[in-house]
Amino acid sequence: MRSEPPHITEPQIAAVPDPAAEQAAREVMMGLYARATRAELQAAVERFQPLPQLKRLRPAEAGLIMVQGRTGGDGAPFNLGEATVTRAAVQLAGGATGVSYLLGRDPAKAEAAAILDALWQDAALRLAVTDALTPVRRRLAVEAARAAEETEATKVNFFTMARGED
C-alpha cells in the first residue's frame, strides 16, 4: 500500500470527542464519497481487506429525491425537479452501521461508500479511512483549480463607448 504525503490530513478531526465536530467531519467524508468514482471508492475499501463480516441492512437501492430551489435564489422553496439517488446501509460485525446516499444509480458505489462510512466511525480506523480518500481529495482539488483557472480566463471588462450622437 502506497503511503500518502503527510501534509494532507483532515482538519476536522478533534483530539477530544466532540459530537458536532465528528458529525461535521463525517459529512465532509460523505461529500467525498459522493464525488468519488466507483473505482476510487472500491480501491479505498480494498485497503481494509479482509473486512469484518458484512450485514447488508439495506441493500443498495436506487430512488429519487425532489431537488428544491428557492424563489429569487434566497426565498420560499419550490420543487425544481427530481434527481436519481442510490442509498445503502451496511453493518460491520462488531462495528458501526454505515450509511450512504449518493446522486446517480450505482449500487456498487453506494455499497462501497456505506462500508467506508462504517469503517470511519471506528475511531481506530478513522485516520486510515481519511487517508484512503486522499487520492480523491487530490483529484477533486486539481480539477476544481483547473476549472477555476479556465473560468477566470473568460472574465471580461466591458467598456461603455460614447454614442455617435453625443
Partner: peptide, 14 residues
C-alpha cells in the same frame, strides 16, 4: 418506476 426518498435542502445558488 422509482421510490422517492425525500426532498433536498433547497440548493444555494449563492
Amino acid at each position: 418506476t422509482l421510490p422517492r426518498f425525500g426532498a433536498s435542502v433547497p440548493v444555494d445558488t449563492g
